[in-house]
Amino acid sequence: MSTLQPIFAPQRIALLGAGRVASLLGPALLQAGHQVVSVWSRTAVSAQSLAAQLSGAVVSPSLDFRTQPPADLYLLSVPDAAVPEVLAGANFPAGALIAHTAGALPLSLFEAYPKVRGGVFYPLQTFSPGRVIDWATVPLCIEAADETGQTVLMALGHSLSNLVQPVATLQRQRLHVAAVFASNFTNHLLGISHALLSEANLPFELLAPLLRETVEKAIAAPPFSVQTGPAARRDVPTLVRHQAELTAHPAWLALYKSLSDSIQQQLPFVVPNNETEL
C-alpha cells in the first residue's frame, strides 16, 4: 500500500448517512481540511446531531441534491441493504461523483444511473460509538468507474490515511469476507470466552496476554503455520473433556467441534502429542 501523501485540494463533501461510519468519518474529513457541506439521514435527529459537529454543514432536507449546496463528492454511508434504495430515491446533479463506503457492494451498482459517476471509498476498520479511530492507520480501498473519479477518491484517501490502495470489486468482496472472519467471527468467539469465564467467576482479563501473543504471531507469520492447541495436537482426551464442559451450551459445543475439525483438516502437519502449549 502507498505511504506517500500527495498534495491535495480541499473537497466539498456531502454525507449521506449519519451512523457509525459517517459519524466518525465526518469529523476526520473536517480535520483533514475538507468541507462537509451537508448531512442527510433517514433519521432527522441523527442528521442534525452530526451536522452540529461539522462546522458549516447543513442538514439536507431531502434526497434531491440538485438545489442544495454543491459538492465535489457525495459519500453514501448507509447500511448496505439501504444503498440501492437511497440511490434509487436520490437526485444528484448531472456528472456528480457518488461513492459508497461498503465492503461487499459492487461498483456496478452505479451502472443503472448513467448520469452520475460511481465510486467506492471503503475504510477497512470496525466502527463503534465512543471509540477513537486513528485514520492514518486505516486502510482505504478505492475504486471508481472513471480515471477522474479514481484520482479524486485517491487524493481524499491520502488526506486521511497512510494506507490507500486501489482495490477492484472482486478483490474487495473477498477482502470483506476475510475481514468478517478476522474481526466479526473473532469477536463472537471472544464473547463465548467471556461468558464461559463469567460462569467460572474468572475475569476476562486473564486472556489478554494470550490474545496479544496470538494476534502478534498471526501477523508475523501465516496464521495456519502457527496454529496450536488440542485440535492441532490431535489431543483426543483434551478435546473430549472440553466438549463435556460445553454440554450446557449445545450451540457452542457444535461450534467447538466444527472449528476443531476445520483446524485438523487445514493443518499440513500433525503437532507432536507431547506439545504442551495451549
Score class of each variant (00 low, 15 high):
G89A: 12
Y74A: 00
L202P: 00
L278I: 07
N162M: 13
V58R: 05
L156E: 05
L239S: 02
P69I: 02
F224P: 15
A32M: 11
T151D: 13
V21E: 00
H188W: 10
A9S: 15
I133T: 11
Y113G: 03
G33H: 07
V39D: 00
I133S: 03
L153M: 08
I192P: 06
E205C: 05
A104F: 04
L87M: 12
L196W: 05
L140N: 06
V86D: 02
V180D: 03
R212C: 01
T3R: 15
V177K: 10
I13G: 12
S108P: 10
A218H: 00
L153C: 08
V270Y: 12
E277W: 14
F224Y: 12
P222G: 02
R42L: 00
P203L: 04
Q264A: 11
L140C: 11
A18S: 09
G56V: 04
T247G: 14
I133Q: 07
V180Q: 05
Y74L: 06
A231W: 00
L15I: 03
T169A: 12
D134Y: 14
S198V: 15
G17C: 09
T67G: 09
A200I: 06
L30V: 13
A231D: 00
E199S: 13
G19H: 01
A220N: 04
Q11V: 06
Q243A: 14
G119E: 01
R117V: 14
L211T: 02
A254M: 13
A144Y: 07
H188T: 02
A82V: 03
V138W: 05
R212Y: 14
L210T: 02
P69D: 03
